[in-house]
Design a protein around this nucleic acid. Structure first.
Length: 805
DNA sequence: GAACCCATCATTTTT
DNA sequence: TGATGGGTTC
């Protein structure tokens, strides 16, 4: 036996042996999914299925590589199985028959950046207001349409009649037209066009259908309608379709994934066998209990109960900090403290947004803690790499206008915007590509002789490179290009350090081309370009380095770590602000699934952290504790350092929510941090535990003890007191501590300081609840959700808010 | 045509 | 806070 079936539990075995007909495997987190899939493929091969009859589709290159190597290790001929991402599968199919769709075989793939550039041009040329039609938003709409397989015509027909929709459809149409003209496809097009190819060409479909007699799809919960259609087309007849997924781990709805694909699988394939993998081999019982407690709050799930035979293990820890910097320091110290139990490489710090990594990084750098940051700028997104690839792309596909525009004046050749606008006009009128037009520089109206000469020099340069490309390996071509275009010299003009780094990156690109295997000519070039455009991160996670990993919750999917920190567990951070205010429950549910994914990454120990204040988009915000923390069963949660933040459950109407410091003080630049809540020492003691009631929020009855501790640590910052409010206000920290209630007259006080959850009354809008305060260097705003008037952003100086009676 | 300055604006991400 | 893009100035 090439694999040991005895290592599999009964449902896993069933998943392996049910080779014929549709199968839906609901694989909970850590349930041995990859192993099961690998065995399944190995079993198919053992049954005599030819390797080329098997197609296994994944979402990421990483997953594809992992599966490929495991299949190769497990089964003879495993290396001949087609294991690839959706996109590269489609690409390979399209390359064989792109001409049927009006494309040349050497079409270019536009990444998101290229798409943005193209869209910006279109918006400009159609003379739409770029403020109103931002390319990002437009492209998002277009992508959503494409994910649902809606052509511009469909979009037009189904148009909601919403303001501006017509124009977005127009942009969509123009965008597609230009892509076709440039012989380019964007990422969505790869799928869409593959589906189209199948639907319009029965012979092509038949060919691939009979080739892929067994189809597997991993991470099925992340498929969008186009992907589903693609798979359906391939499998409709033989019905040997096995999909694996977990609806609870669907976190990509925002980019078109449809959980419905997994929830409705059985209605599309009624005879489908459903297999549940519910035993978790990864996490302690305690961690699973926390995860299950959170996810239980979502409605409409495929019911399944993840269980673990592991020990109970440590409780889940939750720690609050006053400020994000302290949170980072706290995590750092905790890592160091438990170093004997969890080495650096055992730890991961997960957060909701990339921006949160900054504070962590700074803290870790200062302390010399080894860490690795995942995410951020992709190798292929770096400027010099994109520049170089643009030259290559233009060589392979002279119609690629976006690439041409990018490098036509890099390095400087005196071909500026004005000149190119003339060229573009001419090109549009005569229906030529930009490069074609440039070869006819003399015929382009409005160009000076000098400008025309520069264009000709450029086209000559390109033509000579094209000639050379025929007889050079990709590696050699890159070197020649960088030299002949003057790009290397151009880099030298920049700063030394910058230039050095960029040259190293380019060298890296050359190395990659060398790995690609010295083949000569345009086909090799075109293949190299395809591959590079479908590969995301070169710095794939190496296991052998002993460093703490920093990454977003999203990128943690599919990974596991002995010890996991989830930082920024704050309302409005996670769940994020937009989600909280979108009014759509399913948004919150997706966020909750993300939380579930995060929790289930942890094997032995899970630590959640939050900060009362943090800098968000350049201004300080105050936050309450994430509701997800409240959703974790209390008996598995150890709440350390409590008392800094208001519980998100302690919403208005409840008397138990207040802890001081729900908002910050107004002088963040002062070197505080050791005083007050900063060290934790002053605050961890003295507070009643958990949901108790001391510390009281009863207004007018005096400040809580926490107030004085906070406010006296720091002088006033000179902010203007609110009208009629000269005595107080300023000497208090702002926030809960600043409710200057006690000694004031019984007349309604005009508030200057607010904390999330405060109930307030405005003369104009009536009663409402404070959502948050936001502070920039210039002003403080308070965001209030009024009961009758909805959300308003107010300036406290003018709003004259009073406390609700 | 290119160097600056100011205003604006911010999830999540793979391909 | 920071990146980015457009507009202004030389």
């Amino acid at each position: 036996m090439p694999f040991t079936i005895h290592d599999l539990n009964p449902p896993q075995q069933e998943a392996v042996f049910t080779t014929e007909g549709p199968v839906l495997i609901l694989a909970g987190a850590g349930s041995g999914k990859t192993r099961t899939l690998t065995c399944r493929v190995a079993h198919l091969l053992e049954q005599g299925v030819a390797p080329w009859n098997i197609l296994a589709i994944t979402f990421t290159n990483k997953a594809a590589e992992e599966m490929k190597s495991r299949v190769t290790d497990t089964a003879p001929e495993g290396d001949k199985v087609w294991v690839a991402t959706f996109h590269s599968t489609c690409l390979r199919i399209l390359r064989t028959a792109a001409d049927r769709l009006g494309y040349a075989k050497d079409f270019t793939i536009y990444d998101t950046d290229d798409s943005r550039v193209l869209m910006r041009r279109i918006i400009k040329e159609l003379d739409y207001n770029p403020k109103e039609y931002r390319e990002r938003d437009v492209l998002r709409r277009i992508s959503a349409w494409k994910n649902k397989m809606r052509s511009p015509d469909d979009a037009d027909k189904l148009s909601s009649g919403r303001y501006g929709e017509e124009r977005v459809v127009r942009l969509y149409r123009e965008y597609q037209r230009r892509l076709l003209m440039a012989n380019a496809m964007d990422f969505d097009d790869l799928l869409l066009n593959a589906v189209q190819l199948f639907e319009d060409n029965p012979d092509v479909l038949e060919h691939w259908r009979s080739r892929f007699r067994y189809v597997l799809v991993d991470e099925y919960q992340d498929t969008n309608p186009a992907q589903f259609r693609f798979v359906e087309l391939l499998a409709k007849e033989h019905r040997n379709l096995c999909v694996v997924g977990d609806d609870d781990q669907s976190i990509y709805r925002f980019r078109g994934a449809e959980i419905r694909n997994i929830l409705n699988f059985e209605s599309v394939f009624p005879e489908a066998k459903v297999i549940r993998l519910e035993q978790n081999y990864r996490s302690t019982k305690t961690i699973l209990k926390a995860a299950n407690g959170v996810i239980a709050n979502n409605a409409g799930r495929k019911e399944k109960t993840l269980w673990s035979a592991m020990e109970d293990g440590d409780p889940v820890v939750f720690r609050e900090y006053g400020e994000a910097r302290e949170e980072a320091r706290g995590i750092l110290q905790d890592i160091q403290k438990e170093r004997d139990r969890f080495d650096y490489g055992d730890c991961a710090v997960l957060y909701r947004t990339n921006a949160q990594s900054r504070v962590l990084e700074e803290t870790f750098v200062a302390a010399g803690l080894p860490y690795r940051l995942i995410g951020g700028v992709n190798f292929y997104e770096r400027r010099e790499i994109k520049d170089c690839l643009s030259y290559l792309r233009l060589i392979a596909n002279p119609r690629d206008d976006v690439s041409l525009r990018r490098i036509v004046n890099v390095p400087k050749r005196g071909i500026g915007d004005t000149t190119m606008d003339r060229v573009a006009e001419f090109a549009a009128r005569e229906d030529f590509s930009l490069l074609e037009s440039m070869t006819m520089a003399a015929d382009i109206p409005g160009l000076t002789k000098g400008a025309a000469a520069k264009l000709t020099a450029f086209t000559n340069l390109l033509m000579s490179l094209q000639m050379e490309a025929l007889s050079l390996s990709v590696e050699a071509l890159i070197e020649r290009t960088l030299r002949d275009t003057g790009y290397l010299d151009y880099l030298l003009e920049e700063g030394e350090i910058e230039s050095e780094a960029r040259r190293e990156n380019l060298q890296e690109l050359v190395n990659k081309a060398a790995d690609f295997g010295g083949e000569i000519g345009l086909d090799a070039l075109s293949q190299f370009l395809s591959e590079t455009s479908l590969v995301a991160d070169v710095d794939a996670l190496e296991d052998d380095v002993n460093k703490v990993v920093l990454m977003t919750l999203h990128s943690a999917k599919g990974l596991e770590f002995p010890k996991v920190y989830m930082a920024g567990m704050e309302q409005q951070i996670f769940p994020g602000e937009r989600v909280l205010y979108s009014g759509d429950d399913s948004d919150l549910e997706e966020e909750r699934r993300l939380c579930y994914v995060g929790i289930t990454r942890a094997m032995k120990k899970l630590v959640l952290t939050a900060a009362a204040r943090r800098m968000v988009n350049g201004s300080f915000q105050t936050h309450t504790v994430s509701q997800f923390v409240e959703e974790i069963p209390k008996d598995v949660l150890k709440h350390e350092r409590r008392g800094l933040m208001m519980s998100s459950a302690g919403r208005p109407g409840r008397e138990d929510g207040w802890r001081f410091g729900a908002s910050g003080d107004d002088d963040w630049s002062s070197p505080r941090g050791r005083s007050g809540w900063g060290s934790g020492a002053g605050t961890s003691g003295g507070w009643s535990s958990g949901t108790g009631s001391s510390g009281g929020r009863s207004f007018g009855s005096g400040r809580s003890s926490g107030d004085s501790r906070n406010s006296d640590s720091r002088p006033a910052s000179g902010k203007q007191p609110a009208p009629g409010w000269t005595d107080f206000g300023d000497s208090f920290g702002f926030g809960v501590s600043a409710r200057p209630g006690r000694s004031a007259a019984p007349a309604p006080e005009i508030l200057t300081e607010f904390a999330p959850g405060d109930r307030v009354v405005s003369r104009r809008f009536g009663a409402g609840t404070v959502e948050k305060t936001e502070k920039t260097s210039k002003e403080t705003t308070v965001i209030v959700l009024f009961d009758k008037f909805g959300r308003k952003v107010l300036l406290p100086e003018y709003a004259a808010l009073t406390r609700e009676e």
